[in-house]
Design a protein around this nucleic acid. Structure first.
Lengths: 180, 180
DNA sequence: GTTTGATATATCATTTTGATACATTATATG
DNA sequence: CATATAATGTATCAAAATGATATATCAAAC
């Protein structure tokens, strides 16, 4: 993770649409984005401080009464930083499937355990797929907005790959149960 | 990443098959495993030291001449640790697609940039798919070995998902070029 | 004979994770 | 209406992962 802090791009991307607090940023990441990226408070708050010092974002106090609230706004410099990143050639997609790790080392356990692990994965995928399909239907009903194209494509990416997962689960279970 | 150090399981899994040095462990991870997990020296060496202290592995000096070489061997306790992990219910598959992040925030750039980013992804996937298919063919030609079932399934997982990626790339490009 | 690449161990700064601490405000439940 | 519970909000910390770099030996190519 050394080198370029990726969370910066997530934050800038979100702030390019609307002003947000750190907490709200976390909520956004936990939504549709969670299918292809993650973030935590321990990640977000330091990044916000740092980016403010760099002049990529500005903060404004929007506290109500006793309740502390710091809303962040993207600057021209921040928008530029985002554009530069979008144009950068090299991308790193980091995939870590503990499920496959367990499968790969499955020889150290029993076949039943391996099959069970696949079933756990299958259940999770089915659950996520339901959520993704709900997103997709909502998008279908509200067409025309330019940004929706991009959103829609990420959701369809999820649906496409998750369906491939399920197809594989079926195949894998059959193979392990000696039916293939 | 706090909590349970996952690299331990990768190392134990590899050592359950053969004795290895830290360098060799890195090489194994960079092979077929790299499609679903990663590891670095800064990760492996401290883990080896720590696991040796815990009694999960033992080290033996196999240096040749001046050349330093520390070979690690899994203990009964280590094998047990591996089995316990295999049986653990909760798994976390952490997927980080910078490609999708760029797509999601594509509205901040131009359509051409977005399409180009998809093409970069597409090229990488095609390249990886060729490697995976080579693995698969090699496996087909050497059947019968029990462990091959597990290996074969991870490879087929990769092929299945990478094919889904390509299918999506096609769809996405068409959509962005207004052909859908 | 010398440059290049593979083998080998190790550490470091930076980033991410996941948990926790602490406090306020809104909402639901009895 | 009181009170419990959930949501909002900022912040920090230890542990773990990343990616780069340092250092050195040995084999092979040129």
């Amino acid at each position: 993770m050394a080198r370029e802090r990726k969370i910066d791009m997530v934050i800038l991307g979100l702030l390019s649409h609307e002003d947000l607090t750190g907490y709200e940023i976390k909520k956004r990441i936990d939504g549709a984005i969670s299918f292809f990226w993650k973030g935590s408070f321990g990640n977000i708050y330091p990044a916000l401080k740092d980016m403010e010092n760099q002049g990529l974002i500005t903060k404004s106090d929007t506290s109500v009464g006793e309740r502390e609230r710091i809303t962040y706004h993207i600057t021209k410099s921040g928008r530029n930083r985002l554009k530069v990143w979008l144009k950068e050639e090299q991308v790193s997609n980091e995939l870590k499937y503990e499920t496959l790790l367990k499968l790969f080392f499955g020889g150290s356990g029993s076949r039943e355990v391996t099959v069970h692990n696949i079933e756990i994965f299958e259940e999770q995928v089915k659950k996520d797929l339901r959520v993704l399909r709900t997103y997709y239907e909502t998008l279908e009903r509200s067409q025309g907005v330019e940004d929706h194209v991009y959103y829609s494509l990420t959701v369809s990416f999820g649906i496409e790959t998750y369906e491939a997962y399920l197809k594989w689960c079926d195949k894998a279970k059959k193979m392990l149960e000696g039916r293939a």
